[in-house]
Simulated assay, not measured.
Amino acid sequence: MKFAYFSHVWGRPGITPGERYEELWREVEDADRLGFDYAFSVEHHCTPHESWMPSPAVFCTGAALRTERIRVGPMGWVPPLRHPLHLVEEVATLDQLLGGRLEVGLASGVSRDPFLPFDADFDNRHLLTREALELLRAAFAARGAFDFDGPAHRLRDIALSFPPVQRPHPPMWVPTTNRNTLRYLSEAGAHTSSTMIVPRASMALVYRHYLDWWRGHGHASDPRIGYWTLVHVARTDAEAEERAAAHITETFTKTLRYGSVSRSRDQHAPPSRLSTTDILAGSGDLRFLLENNLVFVGSPATVADRIRAASLEGHFDTLLGEFTFGELADRHRIESMELFAHEVAPALRAFSPYAPRPQEPAYTASDEQQVAARLQALGYID
């Protein structure tokens, strides 16, 4: 498994954007020092209640100036909001600035609201996102001037000022659970991800096919499949839950506004039978979140077991962990990150939910039973 420090760059009362950004650079520095594999952020516009990060380039630049080894990127740029050639030049510049540590996330968007201020094309967002990925690949494969014919843009005799460091291009991610998109991504060699509001049983169904398609195209290594949720680690389960409880429910219900729908079925339904509507409706109830393993909160051993169990159920191998949320005290945030880096991550580094390639050790049914038994003993599953 690999581990990302993920930040929406949420604001708080009584703090200026400048102060929040200075906090962000300290957080990314901590992630770099502690050995996290990635630092990811978002592109959000005109959402003061949700995110103070309208510019992925600012995030990548700040991280480049404050880190040495961690890989950095947005998750992701929203291609329909700009001309795709702007994105090509920005990617090349940032990869040069980062010395070849850029990860390129492209997100088509899920809500019409952020598109309205830009008069952007929401209905064709998926087509425009795919076009942007194709243009990135074509532009960086060229040795000199190139032409490009896409469904929305036609470019002629374009010569970039300089290419990215990584050739043929930086790794690319497109968050999705759409089967047709995943089939395309498997051929293009682009990674993917999802979030905790998507039922993991549904994720696993499509991601197993994505892995099979990917391997069928003969890529040298397996894809990365990410999973986003909130994470908090303390010395004991009780301490972690007490510290994080109010901040988790505030984040889901007030910041992300997840709790504005009605639950469609029994709140105690097992995760495999939950719908996205159920998850959204239950997001303000910490016991619901813990019982369904939708947030990773607890002691290092508990959090490691939670992630392993969720990974097996959802078929993901990269955790996109949000460690800074609500008004969680900074000392608790850094303690959580340190415990995660020193005790959780080492327990999971060698683990993969994927069926092994030849000569790779299998994660056995006995291993899975042991994880389930531990979570059951802790009262997290029936």
Score class of each variant (00 low, 15 high):
P151H: 11
F146W: 07
I197V: 15
P151L: 11
T129N: 10
R167N: 03
L185S: 01
L127E: 15
P168D: 02
A132C: 05
L185E: 02
D149I: 11
R143Q: 14
R179Y: 05
L136C: 01
F146S: 08
P170H: 09
H126G: 14
V198A: 10
P199K: 07
D119M: 14
N124Y: 07
T176G: 09
R156V: 12
A142M: 03
A190L: 00
R154D: 06
P170L: 08
A145M: 07
L128P: 02
P117F: 09
M196D: 11
L127T: 15
E131G: 01
L128V: 04
Q166A: 09
F148W: 02
T129G: 07
A152Q: 13
A139C: 06
R154M: 03
R200F: 04
L127A: 14
Q166I: 09
V165Q: 10
R167K: 12
L127H: 13
R154G: 07
A138I: 01
H153Q: 13
R125D: 05
H169T: 00
E187F: 12
E187Q: 13
A145N: 05
L160G: 03
D123F: 12
A190R: 00
A142N: 06
F162I: 00
D147L: 06
Y184D: 06
M196F: 15
L127V: 15
I158S: 10
D147M: 06
T195E: 12
A188C: 03
F122P: 03
P151F: 04
L155A: 08
L160C: 00
L155W: 06
E187W: 12
F146A: 09
R200C: 07
T192A: 04
D123Q: 13
M196P: 00
I158H: 11
R167Y: 02
F118H: 11
L155F: 12
D119Q: 15
D121K: 08
S186I: 02
W173E: 02
A142L: 05
R137M: 13
E134D: 14
L160M: 01
P163Q: 10
A139K: 08
L135P: 03
P168F: 01
E187A: 13
G150W: 07
R154P: 02
R183K: 15
P163A: 10
V165P: 01
T195Q: 12
F122W: 09
G150Q: 08
P117K: 09
G144V: 01
A142D: 04
R130D: 15
E187H: 12
Y184N: 04
D123K: 13
H169I: 04
Q166W: 06
Q166E: 03
H126E: 11
D147I: 03
H191T: 05
H191C: 10
T181N: 09
T192I: 00
A139S: 11
R143M: 07
A141G: 13
S194F: 15
S194M: 10
F146D: 05
F122D: 06
P170F: 06
L182S: 02
T192L: 05
D121C: 09
D147P: 05
F148V: 01
A120S: 11
R167C: 04
V174D: 00
D149T: 13
S193P: 05
T129R: 06
A139F: 03
R156S: 15
